[in-house]
C-alpha cells in the first residue's frame, strides 16, 4: 500500500521535488480546503461515532416513565453487535448477494466495454449512453420501478410466463430474491464500471491490436489475450468498488422490503445498523456496528489490493 512503490508515480513525483525549499508551503495550501473539510466532516464524525459506540441509553430516574439518558457503558455495544444473530446472519446474506452481484457487474461491464472497443460492433454511442443511464436513476426510484416489474400482478414478465402456462415467477421470495435484489444493483452499476474499463481500453496502443491482427488473431482472441491483461488494473479498481458497494448494500433491499414478506429489517448488516439507529433509537449500538463494519471493509480492501498486486502485476 505504499504510494512510493508506484511505477507510474515514482519518477514523476521525484521530479516534482526538484528544488526543495522554494515551495514547501504550496502543497499544503492546495490541500488546505480538502483537509479542513476532511477533518470536520469525516474525521471528527468518525471520532464521535467511536465515542458514541461506548455509550448507551439507559433509564435514569425512578418510575415507569423515567427518562432514557446517555451514559458510558464500555464495550457492551460491541458485545451486543458481535453476538447478535440478526447482525451476523446479515453477512451470510451479503455473501449470497455478493456472489451474484460482484461477478455479474464486473463481467457485464467488461464484456460491454470490450464490445464498445471492438471494431466489429455498431450502435456504440447509443449503447454506451443507454447502459450508463441507470446510474442516473435515484435508488429510491430504481427499486420502486423494479418492484413494479417484479410483483406478479403488475409485472409484464408474468404476462409472458402465464401465456406460456408457466405461472408467475416469485421474484421477491425464496432464493430468487437474491438475484432480484442483485439485479437492481447490477442494472445501476454496470454502466459506471463499464466506463472505467472502457476509458482504460481506449488507452491501449492501437499497434498492439494491429500486430495481433496481422498474426491472424480474431477479435475475440485479441480481446481475451491482449486487451484484458492490459486493463487488469482497471478491473481491479472496479472489483474494489463492487466489493465495497456490496458491503454497503442497503438501498435496494430497504426500498423493496415493504413489497415482500421475505426481506427482514436485518436482511443485510447496514439495514440492521439503520434499524438500530432510526427505528429502535439505539444510536450507540448502531455506532458500534458501524465501526465494526468500517474496520471490516478496510481489512477486506487491503487484502484484495494485496492479492491483486501479486496476481496481476507480480510486484508485491
Amino acid at each position: 500500500m505504499s504510494p512510493t512503490t508506484a511505477t507510474a508515480a515514482g519518477p514523476r513525483a521525484r521530479a516534482g521535488a526538484g528544488r526543495p525549499g522554494r515551495r514547501p508551503v504550496a502543497p499544503y495550501l492546495f490541500l488546505a480546503p480538502a483537509l479542513v473539510l476532511f477533518v470536520v466532516f469525516l474525521l471528527v464524525p468518525i471520532g464521535y461515532a467511536v465515542y458514541l459506540s461506548l455509550r448507551g441509553l439507559r433509564v435514569s430516574g425512578a418510575g415507569p416513565f423515567g427518562r432514557r439518558e446517555e451514559t458510558f457503558i464500555g464495550l457492551d455495544n460491541y458485545v451486543t453487535a458481535l453476538t447478535s444473530t440478526d447482525f451476523l446472519e446479515g453477512f451470510g446474506r451479503l455473501l449470497a448477494y455478493g456472489v451474484i452481484a460482484v461477478p455479474l457487474t464486473l463481467g457485464l461491464a467488461l464484456v460491454f466495454a470490450l464490445l464498445l472497443d471492438a471494431t466489429t460492433t455498431t450502435a456504440k454511442r447509443f449503447s454506451r449512453t443507454a447502459i450508463f443511464i441507470p446510474y442516473a436513476v435515484p435508488g429510491v426510484i430504481a427499486s420502486l420501478l423494479w418492484g413494479f416489474l417484479y410483483l406478479p400482478t403488475t409485472s409484464p414478465i408474468s404476462d409472458v410466463t402465464q401465456a406460456l402456462g408457466l405461472g408467475t415467477i416469485p421474484f421477491l421470495s425464496g432464493s430468487t430474491l437474491y438475484g432480484s435484489v442483485a439485479n437492481i444493483a447490477i442494472w445501476g452499476g454496470v454502466g459506471f464500471n463499464m466506463i472505467i474499463i472502457y476509458t482504460s481500453l481506449r488507452g491501449i496502443p492501437a499497434e498492439l491490436h494491429e500486430a495481433a491482427r496481422l498474426d491472424g488473431a480474431s477479435e475475440l482472441q485479441i480481446a481475451v489475450r491482449v486487451k484484458v491483461p492490459l486493463v487488469a488494473p482497471a478491473i481491479v479498481l472496479t472489483a474494489l468498488f463492487a466489493l465495497i458497494g456490496t458491503l454497503q448494500v442497503y438501498g435496494e433491499p430497504t426500498t423493496l422490503r415493504p413489497m415482500t414478506t421475505s426481506i427482514s429489517q436485518t436482511w443485510v448488516p447496514l439495514m440492521t445498523i439503520y434499524r438500530d439507529a432510526f427505528t429502535r433509537d439505539d444510536l450507540p449500538l448502531a455506532a458500534a456496528a458501524s465501526v465494526l463494519l468500517a474496520v471490516g471493509t478496510l481489512l477486506v480492501s487491503v487484502v484484495l489490493l494485496r492479492l491483486a498486486q501479486r496476481r496481476a502485476f507480480g510486484d508485491a
Binding site: G147, L151, P152, T153, T154, P258, M259, T261
Partner: peptide, 12 residues
C-alpha cells in the same frame, strides 16, 4: 397473506 398498499395489492 401479503403486504398492503404495494403495487401488487393496489392492482388487486
Amino acid at each position: 397473506a401479503e403486504p398492503l398498499l404495494t403495487p401488487e395489492w393496489n392492482a388487486k
